[in-house]
């Protein structure tokens, strides 16, 4: 097994740790901050894996999409805006 750069390895370990915390947490709303940590770590991994200018767009699209998903889940759980 050859080891990756320490920055990339840290991103991967943090993503796995946060995913385990998401699965172990019981309360649905308290899962969402851990999911946010997962999306931060994955966005960082995307850029560290492929340092290309277009990767900024890809990482931003993934991050904003994941944020939008969390936002929709949280507002639906809270009762949701009336027009949905």
């Amino acid at each position: 097994m050859n080891w990756p750069d320490i920055a990339l390895a840290l991103c991967g370990i943090i993503a796995l740790y946060a995913a385990v915390r998401v699965v172990l947490e019981k309360d649905t709303m308290r899962k969402l901050p851990f999911l946010n940590v997962v999306s931060f770590a994955i966005s960082g991994s995307i850029i560290l894996l492929i340092p290309h200018p277009l990767a900024i767009v890809a990482a931003a699209a993934y991050f904003v999409g994941s944020t939008l998903e969390s936002n929709a889940i949280a507002s639906k759980y809270a009762g949701g805006p009336k027009n949905e």
Binding site: V22, L35, V38, S39, S66
Partner: peptide
């Protein structure tokens, strides 16, 4: 939320 973890794992 768990489906979100699957999507996150595929991206890299």
């Amino acid at each position: 939320i768990s489906l979100g973890i699957i999507v996150a794992g595929i991206m890299p």
